[in-house]
Simulated scan of single mutants.
Amino acid sequence: MRTTFDKMMYIFIAIYLSVWIVNGCRVGFYGDHCNILCPSHCAGNVCDNVTGTCFNCTDGWTGSVCISPCPINTYGRDCRMVCRGHCKHGCNHVTGTCDNGCDDGWQGKDCTKECAPGTYGGECNTTCGHCRAGGRCFHIDGRCPNGCDPGFEGKRCDDVCAVGHYGDGCSRQCNATTSCDHVTGICCGIPNTCSTQHCKFGGGLVAGLSVSFVVSVIVNAALSYKIFMVYCRE
């Protein structure tokens, strides 16, 4: 009388032989002598016993013999999943994670969050420039969509006005002979110092020189007149 163990062994041998006969080779092998391993990414390690082509691929792989990773920005079974976030160089073709970090302007585990307000760029570690009225810059490249605060220019508003210009859009000009504060236009006639007036009529040092010159002319004229009168009396 057969024991339970004998029955189980009989079933196992029957299944093993049926696989061998139907497929011609043991699972995981193919070829004329069934001595060639199936491609490593065949699902279940099963391939055609003659050609070695895979019936299905493991997650993240594609092709007849499953040696090609999923196309960029896709992953998973049959490469049917689309990467969720803005992964740099695409997501992991098997798991969908962002192994190489995020594209510029994005953050978070799956790179689905924009940079926090006031920051932009790679890893969101660059501070925005002087965007108008404290406005946000574009989280990817730092552009200021609404323009710059007075005294600044450039697409990211991180450049001060050129020398001789100031104010909104750097459109106002200082006096030609002086420099001025790039925001307020306060004159800087003497290097590294500013007066309290905007650059009008020469401003700062130039205005001072003009007054001195006029005073000097008046004093010299008065002295000349006095000398002339003394000479005439004699």
Rank of each mutant, 00 (worst) to 15 (best):
N125K: 12
P117K: 02
G164N: 13
D158N: 15
Y120Q: 02
C137W: 00
A162S: 14
T184Q: 05
T178V: 08
T178S: 10
C98T: 02
V94P: 06
C161I: 00
A133K: 13
H130P: 05
H130F: 12
N92P: 10
M81E: 15
G122L: 15
G90W: 04
Y166E: 09
D158M: 11
K155P: 09
V160D: 15
H89A: 14
A162H: 15
T184I: 01
C157F: 06
K109I: 11
C157T: 13
H139W: 00
G135S: 15
G108H: 02
G122W: 13
R136D: 01
G147L: 01
N92W: 13
S179T: 15
T112R: 06
E123R: 14
C170T: 04
S171H: 13
C174Y: 09
C102R: 09
K113H: 04
C137M: 07
A162V: 07
V183F: 03
C148E: 14
D104S: 06
C111D: 06
A116N: 10
A162L: 11
C131F: 10
P150I: 03
H89S: 15
N146G: 14
R156Y: 01
V160L: 03
A133T: 12
D78C: 01
H89R: 12
Q107G: 13
C102P: 05
C131L: 03
